[in-house]
Design a binder for these strands. Structure first.
Lengths: 224, 224
DNA sequence: AACCAAGTGGAATGACCTATCCACTTGTGT
DNA sequence: ACACAAGTGGATAGGTCATTCCACTTGGTT
């Protein structure tokens, strides 16, 4: 049909055939797990294998790697947005702030792919970027409140959040799952730095053993 | 001469032929530059190409990637050791501390490979690890002094330094060279968190533009 | 000046990756 | 029940890598 008359206006018109829909879901689910473990540089071939579909099927559905990433992480990003909104409306602005930051960082710790998503910008992927933008706006309101409350330092900038997320991603990347305290420790330090009183409690430092185990583990990266 | 009687005791006996020595130097120099730009995951083939030698020559001289990395970064690591010793003996322990941390982080910013080296542990590479160990010990003395001085918080741990380095590597990795202020800003926050008074000055936040440019740049990683 | 161990470069191997193509299968509207 | 567009998987082309092998060259010693 219409071998091509819809003049580009609406793209989401064509419904998928039921079996195709099912494959699409399987791909997304497989990708979600692979990305969680291996980060965003996981190979397309590996994801197709994990999903039990042919490579062609994967590429037909998601022509670029970014299409897949966007599909996989869109609702995680939405949750971030919701979290930011909830924090903005929390009773105590500072508690909202602290809780939000800790939640984001814990999310990063539990999902390598998401940790990377949070430190990148996907110009395309409109859906995801819109969530991010909305989260950013709620967060900006939140920090204004927290400053007025007198608990957040005046010189804190909304752009310090992405910096913190990048820093946390770096720690997670370097320690793997060998030293989960390292990430919490970093966040503790930073929350101290952000708070007006500077009296935030600090999680314990990782044991040197664990830290060294983490540092030794560095293999593939992506890292960098 | 002695076509092979040394029964494995001393390995560094056999002197290289003069042309081989020269090739070795060229390889190390080329690797230094490639690692600086591309990080430790740079391809062996690329390094051989840059050095103008055959691939076999590279592999004969440095059988594993780590042998090469150790040869390239040994004296950078020694400089770190020297810096730590100098800081330990500085007039003001806190100034020594601050200066040392800032120097290390600036070094990371100027050399992608070294940024990664500082967040890894190379069980083998005895030379490098010894430097690291000595730096660690000097640093431990330094923080003891700084605490006694009353400028460094009591709950600072020597293991917070590797955490800071990992965090900084994460920021550098995510921003590339698009937002150098981001790294300085992170370090500023952390120094504040470490200082007893919490009144350390804070470098300016990066402009959102620059930060986004950095975030968009993510391509190869290594990184992550 | 002649010998040869030490050293060399490039070809070959094999693994893995992205991306495209195409002959076959299958869901679905009639 | 049938037709056929939509969907499929595997083969394939073309890239990058690490690593090994081997026929040739060369520095240094005698």
């Amino acid at each position: 049909m219409e071998p091509s008359s819809e003049s580009g206006v609406c793209k989401r018109v064509r419904r998928l055939r039921s079996d195709a829909e099912q494959n699409r879901d399987r791909i997304i689910e497989a990708a979600r797990q692979v990305y969680r473990r291996e980060g965003l540089n996981a190979s397309m071939a590996g994801i197709a294998r994990a999903a039990g579909v042919g490579i062609a099927t994967l590429f037909r559905r998601f022509p670029t790697r970014m299409d897949l990433i966007a599909a996989v992480f869109e609702d995680a990003m939405r949750q971030c947005r919701d979290g930011a909104v909830a924090a903005r409306d929390a009773e105590s602005a500072w508690e909202g702030f602290r809780g939000y930051v800790e939640t984001l960082c814990a999310l990063q710790a539990s999902n390598r792919g998401f940790a990377e998503v949070l430190t990148m910008n996907y110009g395309s992927a409109k859906g995801m970027e819109r969530q991010r933008q909305e989260a950013y706006e709620a967060f900006t309101d939140l920090i204004r409140r927290a400053k007025r409350e007198g608990r957040l330092r005046e010189d804190f900038s909304p752009d310090d959040l992405p910096i913190l997320l990048m820093a946390n991603a770096g720690v997670l990347n370097a320690t793997g799952d060998a030293a989960p305290e390292a990430s919490r420790r970093l966040v503790g330090h930073l929350l101290r730095a952000f708070s007006e009183s500077g009296s935030e409690p600090l999680p314990p430092a990782p044991t040197p053993k664990a830290l060294i185990r983490g540092m030794a583990r560095q293999r593939r990266a992506g890292g960098a």
